[in-house]
Each structure stands twice: as structure tokens, then as C-alpha cells.
Design a protein around this nucleic acid. Sequence first.
RNA 1: GCGCCCUUAGUUCAAUUGGAUAGAACGUAUGGCUUCGGACCAUAAGGUUGGGGGUUCGAGUCCUCCAGGGCGCGCCA
Length: 584
Amino acid sequence: MLRSQIKKDIEKVVSGVVGQWDGGIEVTRTADEKFGDYSSNIALRIATRNKKQETRNKDELYQSPMEFAKILADSLKSQPYLEKLEVKEPGFINFFIKDNIWQKEVEKLLNKKAFGSPYSSKKIIVEFTDPNPFKEFHVGHLYSNSVGEAISRMFEALGAQVKRANYQGDVGLHVAKCVWGMRFHIKNKKLNIKNLANKNLGERIDFLGLCYAAGAEAYETDAKAKEEIIKINQEIYEKQDVIIEYKLGKAWSLENFEAIYKRLGTRFDLYYFESEVGTLGVEIVKKNLGRVFEMSKGAVIFPGEKYGLHNRVFITGAGLPTYEAKELGLAFKKYEDFAYNLSIIVTGNEIAEYFKVLLAAIKQVGPAIAKKTQHVAHGMVRMPGGKISSRLGNVISASWILDEAGKRALEFARQSEKGRRQDPDKIAEVVAVGAVKYAFLKGNASQDIKFSFEEAMSLEGNSGPYLQYTHARCRSVLEKGRWVGRSVGQRADFSDLANEERILLRALGHFEEVVVDAASSFAPNQIAGFLFEVAQKYNAMYNNLRIIDSKEPDRSRRLFLTHATAKILEKGLNLLGISAPGKM
RNA sequence: GCGCCCUUAGUUCAAUUGGAUAGAACGUAUGGCUUCGGACCAUAAGGUUGGGGGUUCGAGUCCUCCAGGGCGCGCCA
């Protein structure tokens, strides 16, 4: 990576001039090309430090950042990769990289299997999606799934060993409500549960939805039903496998989830259920009762207030584990299964505060595990109409949103026929999934998404389809230009570039850094932004310069740039969990 | 009432984690296909970064106060 090379070189020069410097070296990509390709503020930082420490009189040499920058630049300017080096007020050092160095950089990164970073060969477990059997798989789960899958793939690109984990709430009041609803409907409508089991998946899932709604409503309005539901809840904890409605409902739900994962291109290595980690959680809490946990009003709580947080119930008065105790058990169970260096947990941010309490509790019980745990909270998906809530019954199911997107994509696929389209339904599905995922991933995950069908499914501008389209266009150009492989790229002459080519080449060359930075900060949106930039710059070149009918050496060089763009768009989209069809 | 998070162009979002003149997309206006895929490209207008104060070489970013919004606040998940 060019950036780390520059860092290394600066470090060498700095230690030669001022001795030991452990404030780190910052080398950043410049926002404006007139400042070169990379820039460092090192002179500003060191000179400022000296000023703050009032060493001015002792060491006049470093008084001015500008002067100090000039001294550093003098020793740096002879690096072979440099076109030129400039020092600019108030003390930035700007690096201008030679075109052919960028070309080599692009070739190198295209051939890399894994990008270099501190994460290579580390064991990382990523927990995400976490849908609840018996309840709907809604847009929130889709959001979590998109973020978690992208994070997993980014770390895999850095050579980490990644396990995907999915934690599912198969016990608890919501389940009891649904089971109660199943019994209610079966009795009322004189249904036969065996006949139900033979219906297709869609019908069974719709049935579960009705049952949950009935149970949830009865719980609020009917005191007798409420009592029954609480009793069912107890029974499920004790002997879940004996309850036929429970067994079937859970199996149907899980079957449905798998169908959705397949559609989204996700798979999981490890599945956890609340029913199995609950007992472990209770065990851990009881073992630490008195030391970490306390009795309070008949329940076992973690006194978060001692740590500037809230108190939380871990075991209820009835002796059942709450979500907190289960998640505590889960943290240890995951470590048992896969001795991770890093555990990433992706959830909605409405439980961000509760998670702090949980982490504080884990820290008391197992400090090593707490240290390795990272919570990534994503925002909520909102509709213009208002809040999405399962209580209010206005949740949007993931399948529905994908189907809606699919309809639009199909309309387009059929409209602009070009004869080279093989399977419109298949293409439409890829475009629809890509459009929805990209809409979720292009922004900062911590913020809420204002979801509008207009925008997510308009196939223009900063969207998944735009990137897919650009990729397909590249592939088409390569095919027509009879591009035969990278040997042509090596022979391509990069001594005289048009402006559009220079700009594109430089953008492509930053791919590796972007992936490393995006993974390190758990931010898929950085990749999305980068890909959009690359696509725009390629399209600018495409529209302003001829490629396959231009003369050599322009032709080979532009084909190489097209090849590199296609590769990087494909790889980058894959990092986001979006596939890039060759034709669409 | 207490705690956490958020507020950037008409709208949806960026801003390399404290760097240089705050950038894109959508929408709006204008222009570009007998031409490699028009799901495209080019040009323009659009900003007191919610408001005040502070920290420093330098603040959208950090501290503080205020306003507006969201989420959470013991036996749900």
C-alpha cells in the first residue's frame, strides 16, 4: 500500500531529525488534486507540540511548522515514487505520485488475495440479524443483516477468519403469545394442524402472523388470556419440545429465515437460541451473586448505578433469565465455540444504552471478553408516515420490500430490451436486492434511515443499480475490445494520460486503503462512497474519451483502466454483499 | 424528571476521526445519442454546518449553555 510506504518514510526522516516520536504519523488522501495525492500534517503536529511544551527557547529549529516542514521535505523529496513534493502553508507536506507508480499500485491490488492489516489471520465473530422465530422478519432485520454481512466480508478481505453468528429469540413472551394465538385460531376455525403443516411456506408464515397478532391483542385486552399466555411462557421454558404448536411454529419460522438469507446471499456458521444460552446466563449470574449481582425486590439485578449507568434485572422474580442474562451467557458461549480475538455485535441502536450495562456486567465477570467485544449499533428504518413498530402493526416485512423493488426492476428489465438479456426475472432480483442493500449501506450505519420507496427504488444517482450498470458497461466494453488479460495492462503505456484517465487511475489506486479503513471503523458506507466515486470517474472518462476505437497506446491503456474499474466495482460490491452481473 | 444519541443545500446523505476554499446524489434550469450499453455525461443556481460562548496554529468535528427531535429509564425482547 502506497500510504503505508509514505508513512514509513516520514517516520524514518522524523526520527532522524527529532529522535523518538510516538505521536503517530498521519498521511491522508487529499481532497483537492492541487494538493497532490497524499498529504501529511506531521510538521504542524510536532511543531505545535514543541510550542505547547514551551521548548521554543531550547530548540529554535522547530519553532515554525513551515520551517520544520521544509526540513522534513528536504530529506523526503528524493523518494523514487515522487513526481514532486511541496510544502504549503501553514505546514502541510504534499506528495505528488508518479503515474506509472499508480498503475503498478492498481495492478498489485487487483492481484492481492487479502489486504494487509493488523486483522489478518485474526479470529473475528460477527453477530447480526437476530430475528425472532414466531415474529416477522422485518426491515430492521434486513438492515442489521446488510450491515453485518458487509462487515463480515470486509474483514474477510483483510484476511481475517470470520464466523457469522445469528442469535434468535425462541423463548419469551412473544413466543407464548404466538402459541396462544395458534391454539386460538386452530380451535376457532376448526383447523387441523397437520393440514397446516402441508401448506406452502408463504401461507404458514401468514398464519403465524395472524396468530401473533391475536395473542398480542389478547394479552393487552383479555385478563384471562394474559394469564394463559404467562403460563404458556413458563411451560415453554420447561418443556418446549413437547408443545406441538411450538415445535412447528419454530420450524416454519426458521425455514422462512433461511429462504430470506438465501435471497440476500448470507449464510451463518453459528446459530444460537435464547433457550440454550439462558441457563448458562443464569448459572453465571448465580455464581457471581453478591459479588457482581444483587438481590432486589425478589429479582437479581446488576447495579449499573454504581458504574454511572442504570440498574438492570438479569433474573426475574419468577426465576427466569431476562434478555440481559441470556446475552451474558451468549458472550461466553460464543467464546467457547470460537476463541475470538474480536467479537462484533450488530444491533439496533435502541438498545445501545442497555448494551453499555451489559458490557459493564461482562467486564466484572470476564474482563478479557468485555475487552474483545465491540457493539455496532445501527439506526432505525423509518417511513415518511411515522415510526415502524410491531406493536402498532405497521412493520414492513423484508420480503415485501424486496418484492416491491423487484417489480420495478423487472419493469425496466423488460422495457429496454437489447437482445442480450437472458433472464429478466433473475436480473431483476439481483438488481432489487442490490438496490435495497445499497440504500441501507450508503449512509452512516449509526443514523436512522429515512426510507422512501421513491429514492431506494429509483435506479438513478448514488444507487446500487448505477454501480451494477457501470460494471456491466465495463464488461461490455472489454468484450467488444477483445481484452485478453493483464499482460496488456503491463505493456500499456502510462507516460501520457488524459485528465480523465489520471483522475480515474488515482481513485482506483486507493481501493486497498479504503477497505482497510472501512473495516477498522466498521463502516461499510466508506466503501459505498468510494465505489460511487470510481463509477462516476469511469463514466466521465467513458463519455469524454473513445476507448476501443482509439489508437495505441491509448487503446490498451484505456482498456486496462476499464478492466481495473470492472474488477474493483465487482470486488467492492461483493464486500457490500451485492452481486455484480456481467449483463443486465 | 434523569440518562444516551442526533440536528450540515429545498430533500437524502458525505466530509479521510481536529486540517487547506464544507462535497455528492435527488429535485430545479440549460446542453449532449447516424458514436464503445442514455440505468449515462457536461454546466449552473442552491450553505451564518440549529443558536450563543469557549478551547488552539486551525472547529461541522472537542468543552459548555440554550432550542428542537429521537431512544431508553427493574422483573418484555
